[in-house]
Design a protein around this nucleic acid. Structure first.
Length: 838
RNA sequence: GCGAGAGUGGCGAAACUGGCAGACGCGCUGGACUUAGGAUCCAGUGGGCGGAUCGCCCUUGGGGGUUCGACUCCCCCCUCUCGCACCA
């Protein structure tokens, strides 16, 4: 039987979730309940989930992340915060353009239709967004400000154009930034990336490398995992840079970078990257030219095939030229080799095989000498030695520690003007040029007379033209739009040509969280006062796949905005929650695997509350979530159980006294009230402490189970007023605690109980310490670490009392009579361990 | 290779600073109510053993250790996931 029919036949047994959910979604919207304004009198909370790319439909990953975000937002509402919880669309991007090429739909139409559909989907989830702040990044009123910032960055040298070797995706027909290449493949389409020499625009993120790195230690709300990935990506290393003069070629020098300037006396050769520009000048004759060309071709081909191989064999070609080690004037051989990369440092190294494993391997293979410059420990065996020790065979550095020798070697270089201390980063500048149509135009013009000129501010935005031929054949489509390309120079008024590359879509997502603060402000990127009130984001939630992409770019862009004087924020996101993937049958959901669960079906058959409940219950948020249709049934069953209980007791609860610290007189009453307040403590701690919503849900389930049990237990012997008051306190507490998880069903039941105000205007319940107080506790009695009995004792019983009771216990006796008691450990209110002599 | 994280029932998972392992849910088994039920309710459910409404033994990837006591702390090993991968 199909899922739909199943739902139809069973619907009579379920609470009317369709009506309830539609009703409250309508009421929240009519009341503008989640629209917010700045209110200095209240503490603010900016809760943000990564906005989606409007690909067409939401998927279960979206359901999960938005359920988490809404839970936190509603929880903070209930705690009295002024909560900003916005939503928008990361609307530029390649899929729209590809759809246009395949189906002939204009990217704008495709995008806006997708947005309309996905908006209705999100509204059916009942998330507490302030929809009046919706932002769409492909709207000129949005990217206008991005263009303005681009110009300011251009003026400050933070945006610049240069020719360089870039990552080219042959399938997407565009450049990719380094961060957008994973294992040599395009992050979006998985095609193999090839190097290409091209002109393009860059953002100077390397100027912020140090600050980006430093703040990795100052954001305790971020997962360590993400920070480690960012630190590695930035890849700071300290060392020295200096020149090795080429023998017999005055003026020619090889500049090398090393992190081990202490080892300079162990340098027995030097290596250039094969594509190093100096190589051509060093070639002695045609024979060598041919050898170099052949070697380069070889390496280029090899790097295509073996890029991912763990241990690529090191191969090199000895050049006829030699260089001089300035420290001891030794003339040493010079190689080009595949293990030196042009993209890092200076593209050239001094080789110290004694203390570098890579150099050791190469030297051994080539029969080059190896000099040890660090004293090995006596029992040490191995190849290159990278440990601590005193310097040997190192001239004026002998006897120093490595740290001392590094400093002294650098001083020596500086004193002679041969080199300097240097910090290198793995991080490269962010290449933002895209040779595609569906992106924000770069507001630069090329004038024959004035050269590269930014568009005038009053002429912004540079609007992306609507009429364009999209072939997917390569080359920027804008280059073919005459009306766009041909323009007048903002400086001299003469003829000029517009830049036809568009910006990487990661630029839009680098500041959208600022725009939400004042989404329709037309005096700038954002209104200063609004941003100062709301920023930074208090809790950001999104997938781990952006650990170094979006999250690093957004941090950089925020620092740029700060340095332009637009904001005081140093960092955009105070805390980050990285949620895991949604998987099913052991694999990520995908059409090709046929394991996709469609949120529309799910919401139609079970309701949004059930979909959200299961997303939050099945696993803690940072872990992958294993989707299970039976588990969804369980969530649905639970909500029906809540519904039935409350509806069955509406009258009794409505007339009951409001809890307000009514002290129960019966044991059952006290025990039940303890469960209520224990649940409040557990749920609050689970949300606040570590986002463990799954255990929070199980605590609420236990409370509902306890309500059913209490209802039975209280039928005879308990005063009606006590029963009513406790039922009321139990039910209302359960609804309040469950509210952020399942807002519709709880809001409806809350109203049916006679409350005029929204549940989410209510107060998060407080723990009454008196309710938790106990007279008696169960103490476990162990003999030699094994549980043998349990005792019920007064909470204030002395250790001696407990020890005596434990030793006298009938179930304990058989285990101790034949032995002698060596020791008795008493942990107050917990356990007794009787240790015997064996 | 380097770095980070994780290994707990048939399954998803709990267990705060060392103190009753397996909460909660799924699934399964039995029962009740039913024309029927995959609805609802009740009971049971880590494995093994036993003269079975009670009790014993074993059990948190494997092996050692610290401790009265270890899923938790320390050492070694195995497996898996993720990130980086000749970064000088």
């Amino acid at each position: 039987m199909s899922g739909k029919n199943q739902a139809e036949t069973m619907s009579t047994d379920r609470y009317p979730f369709r009506e309830v959910e539609a009703k409250w979604q309508r009421i929240w919207e009519e009341r503008k309940q989640f629209q917010v304004t700045e209110d200095p009198a209240r503490p603010k909370f900016y809760c943000l989930e990564m906005f989606p790319y409007p690909s067409g439909r939401i998927h279960m990953g979206h359901v999960r992340v938005y359920a988490i975000g809404d839970l936190l937002a509603r929880y903070k509402w209930m705690r009295g915060f002024n909560v900003l919880h916005p939503m928008g669309w990361d609307a530029f991007g390649l899929p729209a353009e590809n759809a246009a090429i395949e189906h002939g739909v204009h990217p704008a139409i495709w995008t806006y239709e997708n947005i309309d559909y996905m908006r209705t989907q999100l509204k059916k989830m009942g998330i507490s967004y302030d929809w009046s702040r919706e932002v769409t990044t492909c709207d000129p009123s949005y990217y206008k400000w991005e263009q303005l910032i681009f110009i300011k960055m251009f003026e400050r040298g933070l945006a610049y154009r240069r020719r360089s070797t870039v990552n080219w995706c042959p399938s997407c027909q565009t450049i990719l930034a380094n961060e957008q290449v994973e294992d040599g493949r395009c992050w979006r389409c998985d095609s193999e990336v090839t190097p290409r020499e091209i002109e393009g625009w860059f953002f100077k993120i390397t100027a912020y490398a140090d600050e980006l790195l430093a703040w990795c230690d100052r954001l305790p709300g971020w997962p360590e995992r993400v920070m480690t990935m960012q630190r590695n990506w930035i890849g700071r290393s300290e060392g020295a840079e200096f020149d090795l003069p080429v023998v017999g070629r005055p003026g020619l020098k090889v500049r090398v970078f090393t992190t081990r300037p202490d080892t300079v006396f162990g340098m027995t050769y030097a290596v250039l990257a094969p594509e190093h520009p100096l190589v051509d000048q060093l070639i002695a004759d045609e024979r060598e030219r041919a050898a170099v060309a052949a070697f380069r071709a070889d390496v280029a081909r090899e790097s295509e095939i073996d890029r991912l191989a763990a241990d690529r064999p090191k191969r090199g070609l000895r050049l006829s030229a030699q260089v001089v080690n300035p420290f001891n004037n030794a003339e040493i051989p010079l190689f080009i080799a595949n293990y030196v990369l042009m993209g890092y440092g200076t593209g050239a190294i001094m080789a110290v095989p004694g203390e570098d494993q890579r150099d050791w391997e190469f030297a051994t293979q080539q029969g080059l000498p190896i000099i040890e410059t660090v004293k090995r420990p006596p029992d040490w065996t191995g190849e290159a030695y990278t440990g601590d020790g005193l310097k040997i065979n190192s001239g004026f550095l002998d006897g120093l520690t490595i740290t001392e020798a590094k400093r002294k070697a650098i001083d020596w270089l500086v004193a002679r003007g041969l080199g300097e201390g240097k910090i290198n980063y793995r991080l490269r500048d962010w290449g933002i040029s895209r040779q595609r149509y569906w992106g924000a135009p770069i507001p630069i013009l090329y004038c024959d007379r004035c050269g590269m000129v930014p568009e005038k501010e009053e002429n912004l935005p540079v609007v992306l033209p609507r009429n364009v031929q999209l072939s997917g054949k390569g080359g920027s489509p804008l280059a073919d739009v005459a009306g766009f390309v041909n323009a007048t120079c903002p400086r001299c008024g003469g003829r000029a040509r517009r830049e036809t590359d568009t910006m990487d879509t990661f630029v839009e997502s680098s500041w959208y969280f600022f725009r939400y603060c004042s989404p329709s402000y037309d005096g700038g990127m954002f209104e200063r006062a609004a941003a100062e009130y709301w920023m930074p984001v208090d809790q950001y939630i999104g997938g781990i796949e952006h650990a170094v992409l979006h999250l690093l770019y957004a941090r950089f862009y925020t620092k740029v905005l700060r340095d332009l004087g637009l904001t005081k924020a140093d960092e955009p996101f105070l805390a980050l929650l990285s949620q895991g993937m949604v998987i099913k049958d052991g694999a990520k959901m995908s059409k090709s695997k046929g394991n996709v669960v469609d949120p529309d079906d799910l919401i139609r058959n079970f309701g949004a509350d059930t979909a959200r409940l299961f997303s939050l219950f099945a696993a803690p948020p940072e872990k992958d979530l294993d989707w299970n249709d039976h588990g969804v049934d369980g969530g649905s069953r639970f909500l029906n159980r809540v519904w039935r209980f409350v509806v069955a007791h509406l009258e009794e609860i409505r007339v009951a006294p409001i809890d307000g610290g009514v002290a129960p007189t019966t044991e059952e009453g006290k025990a039940f009230r303890r469960v209520i307040h224990d649940t409040i403590a557990r749920v609050t701690a689970d949300i606040e402490r570590d986002f463990h919503f799954n255990t929070a849900v199980s605590a609420i389930m236990e409370l509902i189970n306890a309500l059913y049990a209490f209802e039975q237990a209280s039928l005879d012997g308990m005063p009606g007023s006590e029963r009513g008051a406790l039922l009321r306190e139990g039910v209302e507490t359960a609804l309040l605690l469950l509210g952020p998880f399942c807002p519709h069903v709880t809001e409806e039941l809350w109203a049916q109980l006679g409350h005029g105000e929204s549940l989410f205007r209510g107060r998060w319940p407080e723990v009454d310490p008196a309710a938790l107080a106990k007279n008696e506790v169960t103490v476990v009695v162990q003999v030699d670490g094994k549980v043998r009995s349990r005792l019920t004792v007064d909470v204030d019983a002395t250790e001696d009392d407990v020890r005596r009771l434990a030793l006298a216990d009938e179930r304990v006796k058989p285990w101790v009579t034949t032995n002698q008691v060596a020791r008795v450990v008493v942990v107050p209110n917990r356990l007794v361990n009787i240790v015997t002599r064996r």
